[in-house]
Amino acid sequence: MEKARIFLTGVGGQGTLTATNLLAQTALEQGIPVTSGEIHGMAQRGGVVVSTVLLGGLLSPKIGLGEADILIGFEPLETYRALEFLAPGGIVVSSTEAVPPVSVSLGKAEYPDITTIEHAIRNAASRAIMLPARTLGKKAGAVQSGNIALLAAMLAADVLPFGVDALKATIERNLNPKIAGVNLEAADLGAEAALASNA
């Protein structure tokens, strides 16, 4: 898609904003106009973090209800909560592995059954890619790199004018070499998992 509204959501400590910045930087390096914003971010680990990347000259960083072409959820409950932002025919890429938010940890809310969440996601999306992001991150060498696995899974779906190789080039150029290798491995694992899920 030439223009795309991408809504990213997760909880603190998952690298949601790192993923947002890398996605925006990758698009810029491909010559695509980018508008990006952090709608709401809680500083503490476990707080909800929401950000946006809009590609193709869309000027406002805000994504309204029913406007997101792509929803990337780094935590399944947060993906579920954000489904109201998904446009008809939109695509969802989500982790299947829970990181219970503060409200659940404090006993103020119950975590829904993961099967219920997956069912709702698949019903809402024209295409849903569900991956164990934390497990893929651990396999690459750091659980936090699960965010890159999800980004790569989305790019492997050929929904944007650039793909996984462009993301990997951005990682190599912009991340500290000490962590770049882990994130490059996570990108490969995420892309492979996405392609396998679509087989």
Rank of each mutant, 00 (worst) to 15 (best):
Asn123Trp: 07
Asp165Ile: 00
Val53Lys: 01
His119Tyr: 10
Val11Leu: 08
Ala169Gln: 13
Asn174Asp: 06
Arg45Gly: 00
Asp158Phe: 07
Gly15Trp: 03
Pro112Cys: 12
Glu110His: 08
Gly73Val: 04
Val11Glu: 07
Met130Glu: 10
Ser145Pro: 11
Thr9Pro: 05
Asp158Thr: 02
Met42Trp: 08
Ala4Ile: 11
Ala196Val: 15
Arg81Leu: 13
Glu75Phe: 07
Glu97Tyr: 05
Gly73Ala: 07
Leu17His: 08
Gly146Gln: 08
Ala27His: 07
Phe7Tyr: 15
Pro132His: 13
Leu184Cys: 09
Arg81Val: 14
Leu59Trp: 06
Ala196Thr: 15
Ala166Glu: 11
Ile70Val: 15
Arg173Ala: 15
Val49Ile: 12
Lys108Thr: 00
Val102Ala: 05
Gly137Leu: 12
Lys108Ala: 14
Leu136Gly: 08
Ile72Met: 07
Ala98Trp: 09
Ala166Leu: 05
Ala68Val: 00
Ile179Cys: 01
Glu2Arg: 11
Leu167Tyr: 08
Ser126Cys: 09
Pro132Arg: 11
Asn123Gly: 11
Lys168Arg: 14
Val164Glu: 07
Met154Asp: 02
Glu67Tyr: 08
Leu65Ser: 08
Asn198Ile: 12
Arg45Thr: 02
Thr96Asp: 05
Ile121Tyr: 06
Gly47Pro: 01
Ala157Lys: 02
Thr18Ile: 15
Thr9Ile: 14
Asp188Trp: 01
Leu167Gln: 03
Pro61Tyr: 03
Gly163Gln: 02
Lys138Ala: 12
Val104Met: 12
Lys178Gly: 00
Leu17Val: 15
Thr52Met: 01
Ala19Cys: 07
Val50Thr: 13
Leu8Cys: 03
Glu192Asp: 14
Arg5Asn: 11
Val49Phe: 04
His40Asp: 08
Val99Ala: 11
Leu189Lys: 01
Leu155Asn: 01
Gln30Pro: 00
Ala128Gln: 08
Gly37Ile: 06
Asn183Met: 09
Glu172Leu: 12
Ala199Arg: 14
Leu150Tyr: 04
Leu151Gln: 07
Ile129Trp: 01
Asn174Tyr: 15
Ala109Asp: 13
Gly10Asp: 09
Glu185Asn: 10
Glu38Arg: 03
Ala27Leu: 04
Phe162Val: 10
Phe162Gly: 00
Asn21Pro: 00
Glu84Asp: 12
Gln30Ala: 10
Pro132Val: 06
Ala24Gln: 01
Met154Arg: 01
Pro177Arg: 15
Gly10Cys: 04
Ser126Met: 10
Leu184Trp: 12
Met42Asn: 03
Leu189Arg: 02
Gly13Met: 11
Ala4Arg: 13
Lys178Cys: 00
Ala4Pro: 01
Leu65Trp: 04
Val99Asp: 04
Gly163Trp: 04
Val99Trp: 01
Leu175Arg: 10
Ala87Arg: 14
Gly73Trp: 05
Leu167Trp: 06
Thr116Cys: 09
Thr170Ser: 12
Ala153Asn: 03
Ala169Met: 09
Ala153Lys: 05
Ser95Met: 10
Pro112Ala: 13
Val11Phe: 09
Thr18Ala: 14
